[in-house]
Write a protein that binds this DNA or RNA. Sequence first.
RNA 1: GGCGGC
DNA 2: GCCGCCAACATA
Length: 488
Amino acid sequence: MQHISVNSPTLVAGGASSLPEYQRPLSFYGLAPSDDITIEEFENFSFQRLEMLRKIESKATRGLTSEEESKKLADELRNVFNLSTPEGRRQDVISHHTLRLAFSAPDRRSWFVKMESDLLSLRLRFGGDVKQFIESNGMHMEPVSRSNFATLASDLDAVRAQLSAADQKMVRVPLTPDAVSKVPFAEASELVWKRSVLLRDGYAYVFNALLLPVIISRYRLALRRGLQAASNQVPTIQDSHTQLGSLFGALQKYDPGANYEPSGGTVDLASLDMLAKRSFPLCMRYLKGVMDTDHKLKHWGRQQYGLFLKGIGITLPDALQYWQSHFTRVMSDKDFDRNYAYNIRYNYGKEGKRTDWSPYSCSAILNMQPPVASDDRHGCPFRELSATQLTGMVTAELESANLPDAKERIEEVTSLAARNHYQLACKALWEASRPVPTHSPDGGAELREKPAVTHPNEYFDAAEAYRKALEVEREVGGVMPVAVDETM
RNA sequence: GGCGGC
DNA sequence: GCCGCCAACATA
Ligand code: SF4
């Protein structure tokens, strides 16, 4: 059996599980394993952990995040690595560090960080001890002095009164200075979001009973640093241990998040449906709809939509495959190659004068040859669609976001369009389902601050940025702000 | 879609 | 019939 070690000097004294990295049941995994680990162990442990993370993901994507579901999940996960035994802790640490290496590439980090932080959160919530975790890991939480506390006490009481019932139960009633910590604003974003903290001078005053999100926030930061470091180690490790290469290869194939997180500037074809639904401007959503039903698009529609797709990060091979797969449903492969493939490559700067053409702006789109043929689908729907069609599309889009004020929003959008304010209508639609977050950073502010949409890709980018800003909250179990209309 | 070449 | 090359810019 082939023994290998991640760290070069191997030390084994009195059994591996007495090593410092295996002492605490829960940690930020700051210490890498230093004992001998067999290939089989690497494989078994890391695949078991990957299974755990995938379970967490699948629960989350199916929306099973209630207290009961979370508890069930936590119980299930406890059976994978038994953290109350030294060997279970060893397996936990080894598997974590193996996956760090496998998920260290920049475009694979987010998924791993999210799942690992969910895992730690579950473990601490069900069966863990936050206070003990903080102590045993030497985490520093800045205490509040007696005199400072005196000035905050009444405000803290007010905050406590607003807590959810469950949280309120956790905070002991006569508040004392040692029941509160002073935390940098950024580390308490989820609590700020839920208005569970008192804000003063750029700091958040957090009830110690509710410190979990702060821990998770620090964990995410530490983990991101660790992944950065791990990515530097990967080449060395793969050089000295070729056996690990195939393990990493296998682990990569198991990455479930790879094709749904549009990261690293390129976008996977598989995520197109999802992206269209959540972030395409109306014109592009419309063109995509035509592609999905008719599998063809006339020339200017291809230009408008194709360049937009390039702009959001569809690669040339994917673009060729995308158009080909649709067009060949209504024509031969040969016809597609002869008449359309060249133009797609040309738009990507791979033919002729090799210019990387930029996607059309709104004014370019508004200014194109008007669609005359009955099957011309290009242009701006706010101008080209009949009032009935437009209302239908806008309604469909806003209904899926189920807003309290959908009626008014639809009316606002369609009446702007009727007055020929197409780009204003477009922006009103963007805003309708994207209320300004009260606390979290306003992703998409670039667009919100402008009066009108000026570019379809700007619409898309701002929509994605908005989503991403909210994601920060959701990663630590926060609330979506669509439900955040509580004006108080 | 237009222009151009054979 | 075969093929290559190009491209828009007011919309408060
Ligand atoms: S305003 Fe611009 S982005 Fe919006 S639908 Fe019209 S062309 Fe597309």
